Amino acid sequence: MNKVTFAAASVLSLALGATNVNAQSVGEKTGVNSVLGVAPSTADFLKEAALSDLTEIATSKLAQERGDADAKTFASQMITDHSKTSEELKALVSGDMKAALPTALDETHQKKVDKLKDAKADSFTSDYASMQVSAHKDAVSLFERYAKGGEDPKLKDWAGKTLPHLQHHLEMAQNLNKKK
């Protein structure tokens, strides 16, 4: 086995071993799972989906205050939709799973919000739009991978049903980004 294959296998085995919702696997954290098309563990999926919603809501609240008219319209839709998916996710985990979802942003996601807070007025909407494109690409990848190969059948089904909305959000973000 060559060094690259061994390293990928090592990272993959570590990634598949995570069970605590607050501990993210190396493969998901580094993006290796996404590159390899590997489904995230249920714990990773729950954590990343919840953090994604929290980040979308936080950045969109900033956009409602500081963005132009197009950004404010988009932000309002993001707050509505991501608040809904947050509630759906909470309902799913409070049933059979009994998992603890993050209720606050981790350091990585907080830095993204802080970066947007610090954006200059003339570049805010452009920065927000770019951030939304990136965030929704990540979310689409996460949900696609879990819908195809996730461990929990109810969560897998929910990921599949939520995916078209995230794909639509990505298109909307890309259109907003083109205008800027």
Score class of each variant (00 low, 15 high):
residue 76 S to Y: 03
residue 25 S to H: 07
residue 39 A to R: 02
residue 55 T to E: 06
residue 55 T to I: 10
residue 175 N to K: 15
residue 35 V to P: 05
residue 8 A to W: 00
residue 94 S to C: 09
residue 61 K to T: 14
residue 7 A to S: 00
residue 122 D to H: 11
residue 52 S to G: 15
residue 146 Y to Q: 04
residue 52 S to K: 08
residue 170 L to C: 10
residue 64 Q to Y: 01
residue 17 G to D: 04
residue 11 V to H: 00
residue 26 V to K: 04
residue 2 N to I: 02
residue 106 D to V: 02
residue 143 F to H: 14
residue 166 L to G: 06
residue 121 A to Q: 15
residue 81 D to S: 15
residue 150 G to V: 10
residue 138 D to P: 02
residue 39 A to V: 05
residue 150 G to S: 09
residue 63 A to N: 06
residue 98 K to F: 11
residue 1 M to W: 07
residue 103 T to E: 13
residue 180 K to R: 09
residue 146 Y to R: 03
residue 156 K to L: 07
residue 64 Q to F: 06
residue 26 V to G: 04
residue 130 S to Q: 01
residue 82 H to R: 07
residue 45 F to H: 00
residue 53 D to F: 08
residue 95 G to W: 10
residue 33 N to M: 13
residue 169 H to Y: 08
residue 106 D to Y: 03
residue 64 Q to C: 01
residue 8 A to Y: 00
residue 66 R to Q: 06
residue 131 M to E: 08
residue 147 A to F: 02
residue 131 M to T: 09
residue 83 S to M: 10
residue 115 K to F: 04
residue 164 P to S: 08
residue 117 K to I: 03
residue 108 T to R: 12
residue 91 A to C: 00
residue 105 L to N: 07
residue 156 K to R: 14
residue 69 A to F: 10
residue 70 D to T: 01
residue 5 T to E: 14
residue 3 K to F: 05
residue 105 L to R: 05
residue 133 V to M: 02
residue 45 F to Q: 08
residue 75 A to L: 05
residue 45 F to E: 02
residue 108 T to N: 15
residue 56 E to N: 15
residue 116 L to T: 01
residue 78 M to Q: 12
residue 107 E to Y: 07
residue 163 L to D: 11
residue 106 D to C: 10
residue 62 L to F: 14
residue 141 S to F: 07
residue 169 H to V: 06
residue 131 M to C: 06
residue 90 K to T: 10
residue 87 E to V: 11
residue 8 A to C: 06
residue 157 D to G: 12
residue 142 L to H: 06
residue 24 Q to K: 09
residue 84 K to L: 14
residue 67 G to R: 02
residue 75 A to G: 01
residue 135 A to L: 09
residue 105 L to Q: 10
residue 126 S to C: 01
residue 22 N to A: 11
residue 19 T to D: 07
residue 37 G to K: 07
residue 100 A to F: 11
residue 72 K to F: 05
residue 175 N to G: 14
residue 32 V to F: 07
residue 115 K to W: 01
residue 54 L to A: 05
residue 122 D to K: 13
residue 106 D to I: 03
residue 95 G to Q: 12
residue 53 D to G: 15
